[in-house]
Amino acid sequence: MGGLGSGGATHGKSRFDDVYIQPDPRAYFTRLAPLDYEIPHHAQPVFRRLAAERAAHGDGRPGGPVVLDLCCSYGINAALLNHEVTLAELYERYMSDTARRMTSAQLAAWDREFYAERRRPDALPVYGLDIAAPAVRYAREAGLLEAGFTDDLERVPPGPALRGALAEVGLITLTGGGSYITERTFAALLDGVRRPVWVSAFVLRTVSYEPVVRTLAAHGLHTTVDGSRTYPQRRFTDERERQHAIEAVRALGGDPSGREEEGRYHSVLYTSRPGPAR
């Protein structure tokens, strides 16, 4: 879930801006635990597989490709991609009595040691992009992100630092941010990349990804969708949010029975790679 947005709602969807302006991720996990926020868990094996495939896909440039995680918040996807840890373990860690007693600086130091000990041998450098500066700052301090950026690409073009970083990006990932960013962000990113870029995005069924698909196609990327399953994201905060989601899914031609009607947001996986439509 990206740090885009305060406990209000955007188009009927509850927002959690207040947890992203904290200096560390304890409030994030405490707030989302009762809602069973789980999409990073489902994304973990998908992103690991695609990252390995992309790294093995030579592109004639020195060095390995960088992963850019959109709406990265506190670096959760980077933690799960590059370290031997599960989302359940992260909930337990950040909601523990030990973590509760620490200052933010102590927590960051504790995290740096924790993640360094669990770093996978096939880890790839991860950059993060999120307008929530405190969250990005913590992910950097904890050693989860090699670089972090707070450019709001919905409103302005990439700044010099992000423009320079885009030259190394080979895989773009997204979980939970599809409600907040549009094709404008993707166009700005793809205009600046230099390597062949793949995109892996988990998108809520309540929003249309078609404008992004068209933008990706204009940049030479063909998108496929995994129609075999959906991925639960989290429980609804209340009945109002549930009803909005049901109506939004129906408006896009989907069937909410067994999914949104049962009380959870569900996402669909889109994968985009260079090449003609197949």
Rank of each mutant, 00 (worst) to 15 (best):
R93V: 00
H11K: 15
S200I: 05
G8I: 04
L189M: 04
R112Y: 03
R31F: 06
I131Q: 02
Y20L: 03
V213M: 09
R250G: 08
G7H: 15
G177L: 03
S200K: 05
A217F: 06
R137V: 04
R61Y: 06
I181A: 07
P40T: 03
A165T: 02
R112T: 07
T215I: 03
L189D: 01
Y20T: 08
A248S: 11
Y209L: 08
Q233S: 04
R205F: 04
R120D: 13
S14K: 10
A147D: 09
M95H: 01
V212S: 02
L32D: 00
H244C: 11
Y270A: 12
E38M: 05
G253H: 12
H42E: 09
W110Y: 14
R250Y: 06
G170I: 01
P65F: 02
F47A: 11
R235K: 13
I39A: 14
G176W: 03
F114V: 04
A79M: 13
T86D: 10
P232G: 01
V126L: 06
G8P: 14
R93L: 09
A167S: 09
H57M: 14
A78D: 12
V249M: 04
A56F: 02
T271N: 11
L174F: 01
M1N: 00
H11G: 15
I246F: 05
D238V: 15
M95W: 00
R278F: 14
E141T: 09
G263I: 11
G263H: 08
G275K: 07
R163F: 08
G258F: 02
R101W: 10
P158F: 01
E260K: 09
T182P: 13
G178M: 14
T237R: 15
V249T: 09
R259N: 13
G3I: 07
A88F: 08
V199W: 09
R155W: 05
M102R: 14
H244V: 11
E261D: 13
E84T: 14
T206F: 00
V207L: 11
A132L: 07
D226T: 06
F186N: 01
Y270P: 08
R195M: 03
L144V: 07
R250Q: 15
R61M: 07
Y74C: 01
R31N: 07
Y231V: 00
L216S: 02
Y37F: 11
V212C: 05
P40I: 03
E38K: 09
E117N: 09
V156G: 02
L50V: 14
L145P: 11
R61F: 04
M102T: 04
L269N: 08
Y270L: 14
G263M: 07
P121T: 15
D97I: 02
